[in-house]
Design a protein around this nucleic acid. Sequence first.
DNA 1: CCCGCCCCTG
DNA 2: CAGGGGCGGG
Length: 662
Amino acid sequence: MDSPSDRFHQQPSQMCPFELYHSLPDSNPSSHRFSPGSLSSHPLFSPLMHPNSASQRWGSFRQRPGLFPGLLVDDDIREEDVFGKREFATPASQRCHGERGQSSAPDPGEWGQDFARVKRPRMDSAARSEEETGRDGKRGRKSRASVRMGERKGEKPGNRRESREGRKRQRQELKLQLEETRGKLLELTRKVWRVYGGQADDEKGGDEQENGAINLDEVAEMFSDSDDPLISSGFSPPRCSSKKNNETNENGNAEIFPETSVDLDLELNGDQVWLGCSLVRGEWESAEGGQKFAQALKQELANVVAQVIDRVVRLYAETDASTVTSASVSQETSMPLDLNSDRRARPHAVEQVEALPLVTKSPQDKRAPIAQSVLLPQANPSLPPLSQPPLPALLPPRSKDHFLPSYPPDNPVPLPLLHYTMQNLFARSLSSLPLHKDCLSESFMDFRSHNSAFPPLPLLGQLEPSPSDRAREGGMRGGGAGGGDGGDAALYLAAGSSQEGLSPCHLKKAKLMFFYARYPSSSTLKTYFPDVKFNRCVTSQLIKWFSNFREFFYIQMERFARQAAREGPTSARERSLRLGRDTELYRILNMHYNKSNDYQVPERFVEISEIALREFFSAIQSGRDTDPCWKKAIYKIICKLDSPVPDSFRLPGCPTDTYRMG
DNA sequence: CCCGCCCCTG
DNA sequence: CAGGGGCGGG
């Protein structure tokens, strides 16, 4: 018997995961100090690294164009890539619908490939992870003494209670470490900036850079050892030689962020921090030095990214420890990845791969701890309000304090914001992985979507600039979104867990999207359904939905047009050709696409509907409807009238009204 | 050949 | 709303 879900079986993708990364428009490597390709995969970490609004941050970087051409350009592209132009197979034709994001994607830099090499086996190994656990596992575990976190002394069944407590503590540590890692990542970025700045301002103050050199090992160490919770939480004596840096570091990441954009420019001439890599200042001006530098940078960043991912994943694994054998969990490693060296990278890659599948399947504990660890920016009064950007996106903890669960439970800050933050953080960063989704192990993608396990947030409205005091918003959040289709539970589930297929919530969202886009391209759909695991089936199902929506739409239009045509040339006809919000046609449309009526039908949609209605009418009136394909002309007109879908739709879950509401 | 669309049907 | 056939474009 074929169960319906059979249709959603994973199809092995033949698509190249790297199609995301094309060549930079005119990234002639020789025109840069180093190959932009080497750094171009930074989009992966940029969201992690600049969680408090990447756009803002990079925006300030942009003020120094040319300094970091590869990165800057790439970042721009990244945004587009993730949000506007996420097409794996090249979108041959953007049917009628205006697509944003014309820039081409970054070059598949080595790093991207390296990274893929690391991540890709996750999928392959999922199946055989069990036997690997037995075989490689023992060996690997021993070699991973540096990562005590995941290690429990006794894996024996007898130590259950102990390990439970341990897990709890580990979770705490993880939070801290995650935070710390981010901070370090940022720090690293700053160093890079100094390096570049130093070079740019070479004449002025680049002299002592050799002295300030940091050994690469030192840096690596900085990233790798975090056994001590204190150290992890940022209390460790800073190892880098920059004094200014120390201050900011010790104060935690919160202080780093606000400072970054302002200080970067100033500090460029200040303390000279030199990234190690046995690189002497000036050396990298040669091609070789540039490569070294790029490699070092690549390595460091890869390290951190890998760690962040692993730790977060582990975090999830821990929450579901009941179904996961501790042995498997401890298989993971946070060991630094050397993406440049295959022989070293391989084992790590395998290790990394293995734990993930375990994370996936049984997300019983939906209140992912991570939720508590992300805090709301508003909590910090010194911060600018985040309501500005329509796409506030990354709004991470500003301070390590915020990581503590002791955050006031009655805090006035809307919780969903938190959800929003994590959502974007992970949705974006994971979307940036140079992997086709189909190639990802389920766990990996699930991991992403589990972040939406928090209140599925129909709260986008709150994030919009327009202050809308809708009394109903609460109602929606309370589960009213289902509005009588009895789908409340399903809605929440849908937004929270990315099953393979599409949920009622997605359907609802798609219908609302129809108000804006009658002919969305598949890439657009991918953009607006970040919590959906896209494969061929899902994509075509979504497309089919829209096809059905259109069909219904056009049928109604034709029906009412014919009705109007029957009215005779009276004022009654003119009336029936109008589509006010008090008309029957409007009611029908609203009923169909917005059943729960909790979304304000955009005026533009009403207009377009009326246009369609009139087109049908005139076609009928003039007898064109005798032509078998008389509707095509109308379709052609309508498909040009698609408007951009609001950013709020980019989030998982059902969007709420961003307009006012009654 | 694949994809997306339309149309029809259930 | 899903399936399936037919059609046209790349």
